[in-house]
Design a protein around this nucleic acid. Structure first.
Lengths: 125, 125
DNA sequence: CGGGATCCTTTTAGATACTG
DNA sequence: CAGTATCTAAAAGGATCCCG
């Protein structure tokens, strides 16, 4: 099976293109890190809040809701009087995570080239 | 050769992590589309401006500058009295483009699952 | 513990007009 | 043709307080 990838031409097409939407989602400030953390194990809400320095709870909530809505993260409410909620990757989320890891590897491998290019660019008047 | 990928823990680490930076760059509104267009052939400035509906010249300029600074796109000034500037993918840019294409393919392939998840989420009160 | 509601700041993008 | 300058609008992110 092969999928052909065409470049969207109209604005409406582009804005609704799955690739565009996904890239913009993943390009948010925190989703990539959340998905990376959940790759290892499930996390509770406040556990995530503590694990990620500089992330406010409001934004954490919004980020998790979006990931949950997209079917990338599952939310499970545990038993007991003190509410325990657990966030974990779904199969779909794990599948995406693998793609993002590939991209992250590319970034790390080519970091040197990018920095050199930036230095050259900044050096030229 | 294998590269180990560790999740950044401090805020400073995370913000300067090559993977974070790249994902946020690519997650901008236009870079992905510009790179996709340049995959086929070089473009002139106004040519790009016309090709991309809804993109203002100011933003196009900024986007191209950033891509150029990162070494992903090359800028060549042609001869002649009416200035002809050509933007083209560099080798590095072409390499990244391949990764983004893989991500785009994932997005297209799993678009149905994502939409279904969203409908389920939106349907539950 | 796991949020929602409100308000505020920063970042990103768009409109418009002008230039070599 | 290929931009820059200035200004405005929208989106994303953050601080804080409140609640079951």
């Amino acid at each position: 099976m092969s999928t052909t990838l065409t470049v969207p031409v109209t604005l409406a097409e582009y804005q609704s293109c799955p690739a565009t939407v996904l890239l913009r989602r993943a390009g948010g400030k925190w989703p990539g890190l959340i998905l990376a953390l959940l790759r290892d194990r499930p996390y509770g809400f406040n556990e995530l809040d503590r694990a990620v320095e500089g992330l406010s709870r409001r934004v954490l909530t919004r980020t998790l809701r979006t990931l949950e809505r997209d079917g990338l993260v599952g939310r499970t409410v545990g038993e007991g009087r003190s509410p325990r909620v657990e966030y974990a990757l779904t199969e779909l989320g794990r599948s995406l995570q693998a793609q993002l890891t590939a991209l992250a590897l590319w970034a790390v491998e080519h970091d040197g080239e990018i920095r050199e290019a930036q230095e050259r660019f900044d050096a030229t008047p």
